[in-house]
Design a protein around this nucleic acid. Structure first.
Length: 343
DNA sequence: AATGCGGGGGG
DNA sequence: CCCCCAGCATT
């Protein structure tokens, strides 16, 4: 264990990347970066981190922002509950904790949007406290190193990894060790084509010695995505306005804004159906034109998106000035469309 | 323990 | 096309 820890740390000091969130390890910066990086690659996360910190430099400024502003900063990044929870936690800290980020592991774990991984990351990265930060990288590195053949997502595997890492804290700083393991997983011990020849743990890795790198960690197969058919109607109202609605169900894109939506089981929808639906909102459309079809793939869903366009003289509270549409956070398929509408 | 939640990049 | 990523909340 001592040898492994030493080799990891030495490697890390020489090869670690110069990433923006590593410059100043304040709890706020660690927190924001870790939430952004959940299920997100570093390359993509960088842009969002810098913009986000610029927009909301500290927890109080984040707390004072509106949910729409926070979601706008998150637009295009996905998993929007991360942004909603981030905002809720900022408000909680600002209003109930005098703006001071909690220091106890148990307190941190109770904050919305923070689970075991992120709590461990904050404890170790910000304060060098001995709590493992077990993410996909850590699971991959440790299961290969010790040839752990149980599936990576199991609780028993998690506990096994946790205890092995805690042993290494006897010989290293938790902050550096946690960072080193994750960095190794990202740069060397990658899911496919790991660079074993340049790995600092080349001599210790049991999976490599037994030629089983490819089978570890064990993963589970996933189900095929559900097909959905979404018909969106861009409705332009009087005085350069446009209809938008906020998604508020337990479904994808919760909190974001889209054009008027009708969901059907079928790929095709009749103009009559469109008119009948609009009538329910008291909207009487002019001619409805078909604009564009596209497929948008999510992990668990394949979305068949149909975009229509129409005008109306009817009034409705959901009409906003076209010039303001750029202020509203919208799902990826509509980002470009919203940008064009202002012109 | 299983499921749902986005979007992107690489092989 | 398939993989899976610095995971979490809910059930």
């Amino acid at each position: 264990m001592e040898k492994i820890a030493n080799q990891l740390i030495t490697w890390y000091k020489g090869k670690k990347r110069d990433l923006p969130w590593r410059k100043n390890r304040s709890p706020y910066r660690v927190w924001i970066s870790e939430i952004i990086l959940q299920q997100t690659k570093v390359q993509q996360g960088k842009r969002y981190f810098n913009d986000f910190i610029q927009l909301f430099p500290d927890v109080n400024q984040l707390a004072m922002a509106s949910q729409t502003e926070v979601l706008k900063a998150w637009e295009g990044l996905g998993y929007y509950s991360r942004a909603r929870n981030l905002h809720a936690t900022a408000k909680h800290i600002s209003e109930n904790l005098k703006g001071v980020f909690p220091t106890e592991h148990q307190e941190i774990l109770q904050l919305k949007g923070i689970g075991k991984y992120t709590a461990g990351a904050i404890m170790s990265f910000a304060w060098n406290k001995p709590y493992p930060a077990i993410d996909g990288n850590t699971i991959r590195v440790i299961t290969r190193l010790f040839k752990i053949e149980t599936a990576g997502h199991l609780t028993s595997t998690y506990k096994h990894i946790d205890s092995l890492i805690r042993e290494m804290y006897l010989y290293s700083h938790p902050k550096e060790l946690n960072e080193a393991i994750i960095e190794l997983g990202a740069l060397v011990c990658t899911p496919t084509n790991p660079q074993c020849t340049s790995c600092p743990l080349h001599g210790e890795c049991i999976a490599r010695q037994t030629g089983s790198i490819g089978q570890i960690p064990k993963t589970i197969s996933k189900r095929k995505p559900k097909e959905r058919h979404l018909h969106f109607i861009i409705i332009k109202g009087i005085n350069h306005t446009i209809y938008i609605e906020q998604r508020n169900k337990k479904d994808i894109w919760n909190g974001l804004y889209t054009p008027y939506l009708i969901e059907e089981e079928l790929d095709e929808i009749s103009e009559k159906t469109l008119i009948l639906n609009l009538a329910k909102e008291g909207i009487k459309p002019d001619t409805i034109l078909k604009k564009e079809n596209k497929i948008h793939k999510l992990t668990h869903q394949t979305l068949h998106i149909h975009i229509w366009e129409t005008k109306t003289k009817s009034e409705h509270q959901n009409f906003i000035p076209m010039k303001e549409v750029q202020n509203y956070p919208t799902p990826k398929p509509f980002i470009d469309l919203f940008k064009k509408i202002e012109n």
